[in-house]
Write a protein that binds this DNA or RNA. Structure first.
Ligand code: FES
Ligand code: FES
Lengths: 156, 156
DNA sequence: CCTAAATAGGACAATTTTAGTCCAATATGC
DNA sequence: GCATATTGGACTAAAATTGTCCTATTTAGG
């Protein structure tokens, strides 16, 4: 189904919340939980991952909490994906270390990698700020240039 | 990790093999297994899915086998993905029927859907014929037009 | 007919992944 | 000291995936 894990889904909501509370103040996990209606333990887990991934910074102790490490406009969807579920790799063969035993006979591995890169490129251009905006008119157009040189435009 | 299932990976190899043997002749599962070095039971499973999905047609009995239902140029990666792992839906909320309880408070659901569509559009323009070609120079360029109208081009 | 070659359909257990919660340790402010 | 918070990891239950196998059905050919 080519789906993302719930952790990533939650993570996005959490990041959006932090972007909202973003007057530079620290926001404790309990706040995030209340604001997103996600159970506190889950929020804590997500925030830990985001902190380790370097997307948010934390302060411990009383008065502590979390805060975006950068402006929402400078956090890409690709980074979020990478942090929350590791680098995009559609097939196992795409991994540099994992060696598929079919590789000698395989003709498609390279193509999947290209598709991965296309997806990655798509997410590179979408920032947390884009996600934060109300999802009404979200201008997104997609173009692939074929070898022939003619471009097909898809939008819907 | 945003990965596809192994079934889909196998399915692609199987389709490529069928595209190779494509002199219109029927190709039994045992042949596909030998050609792809994938275990026979797995190949059988994959071919059953592809047949039900309408990507290949089958003939039973002695002399039977499988055959692409269309030319490789007219089978898109999106179709393959849809058939083998169901429609692309990054988040559960993207599903029309599944109703996320966070929906009233959620600000990002729409954006994920847009990203899904971008991915879908990417795979719409890639055909089985593209996958079949040796993965050397696979011309793919990706462009998103922002609201501002300026286009960023990504290629690597 | 009879047999061998094939697909159709689904059941099945084993493995792996995911989800969500909880606990003990540590750090901070008052 | 004490309440507030993060840190790190352990842990279990549930869900998804994987790969194989079994039985029924269909077809070609002698
Ligand atoms: S290299 Fe593993 S399937 Fe192609
Ligand atoms: S609608 Fe479910 S998380 Fe947005």
């Amino acid at each position: 189904m080519l789906r993302i894990s719930k952790i990533t889904d939650y993570g996005t909501l959490v990041l959006v919340h932090l972007a909202r509370c973003d007057d530079g103040r620290l926001c404790p996990a309990s706040d995030v939980s209340a604001g997103t209606h996600i159970a506190l333990p889950t929020v804590q887990k997500v925030l830990k991952i985001l902190t380790r991934g370097g997307l948010v910074e934390s302060a411990r102790g009383a008065g502590g909490g979390y805060r975006l490490v950068r402006a929402p406009e400078q956090i890409s969807a690709a980074e979020i994906l990478d942090t929350l579920e590791g680098p995009v790799a559609l097939t196992e063969c795409s991994h540099t270390d994992s060696h598929c035993k079919l590789e000698p006979n395989c003709q498609v591995g390279g193509a999947w990698q290209k598709i991965s890169q296309a997806i990655r490129a798509a997410m590179n251009d979408i920032t947390l700020a884009d996600l934060r905006t109300p999802p009404n008119e979200f201008p997104l157009r997609y173009t692939i240039l074929h070898a022939s040189g003619h471009a097909t435009r898809q939008s819907k």
